[in-house]
Design a protein around this nucleic acid. Structure first.
Lengths: 159, 159
DNA sequence: TTCTGTTATATTGTTCACAATCTAATAGTG
DNA sequence: CACTATTAGATTGTGAACAATATAACAGAA
């Protein structure tokens, strides 16, 4: 028999992993309409809030490294949503800013959070509990809620 | 000014996203020693528990699609950790089973969960609260705890 | 100023992750 | 039995994600 600490069902971490992908799956159809991926979406979110920022600031704010950010920005630039310019004061630094089109996209994104919230909110909730047991329950609940919502919307969209 | 529902700091989902990657970063050095990725690790975890399974069962248990699983299994097979055989009773179905080497690897993996747990457990914890506020606090706490642990171990490993 | 080290970003190579498509095998229907 | 639909996996193509490396610009010390 398997060692209990190595059983999938006992893995808190697997719950995070599965939940994260399920969440991305919830975003995908919404972001598809804007032609964005989630990583691109949060990159723009930073820029909508701060108007502009260096590559390093973006990497740090989103906890991504340059190997992820550089090509991502290249694609956003190719989509004409951002511009990149090296600073005159320090030619190593690249400053990223929104184009008009990139700024406009914020308006189309405004409804996304409430759509996602509707996938995350379950209809019932109850008592409190011990820290990790509660967190684990929350994650399970959230994950199954997400899956349920996706299934429903999938079936609704099919007919 | 930015719309509040589109600010990164207000995004529950961004917390999941950041936390998941931070968690993977915690696993990476441990799994590197076994020559595994996280996806490969949980695939083996399924097999350690069930001894064998079809590609479809693995996809379903791990919530991954065949486009991810097929090449992943091919790499595990190349590493001589698993074998793949089509079933005689249904030639469409591929059954995956552990090799001796794959079975042995479980012993080396036994200590991983407690290592990860030590990254996840913070030294203090307090009161309860409303559902999402509490979950959000938990995620923040877990994320910063993970980051702190990684920083410490990074610095410790550097000297 | 020149040399050295550091910093900011970009590139390369591997693996995930998933949509879309493909192939082969099975099941179901007339 | 023949035809069609379904199912199980594999493949292709795109975009993350990250380690490792490369490149160029800046900073500090001799």
């Amino acid at each position: 028999m398997a060692h209990p600490q190595l059983m999938l069902s006992n893995q808190l971490c697997f719950r995070f992993y599965a939940l994260e992908r399920e969440l991305m799956a919830a975003y995908r159809p919404l972001l598809d309409e804007l032609g964005l991926t989630y990583a691109q979406y949060i990159t723009l979110m930073y820029l909508w809030e701060h108007e502009k920022g260096t590559v390093g600031e973006l990497c740090s704010a989103l906890s991504l490294d340059t190997g992820t950010m550089s090509p991502l920005l290249k694609r956003l630039e190719a989509a004409n949503l951002i511009e990149r310019h090296r600073l005159a004061t320090d030619e190593r630094t690249v400053e990223v800013s929104l184009t008009h089109k990139g700024r406009e996209l914020e308006l189309k994104a405004l409804t996304i959070p409430s759509h996602i919230a509707s996938c995350l909110l379950s209809s019932e909730q109850d008592e409190q509990s011990r820290k990790y047991a509660e967190l684990r329950r929350m994650l399970d609940e959230t994950l199954s809620q997400l899956k349920q919502t996706r299934k429903e919307r999938d079936e609704a969209g099919r007919k």
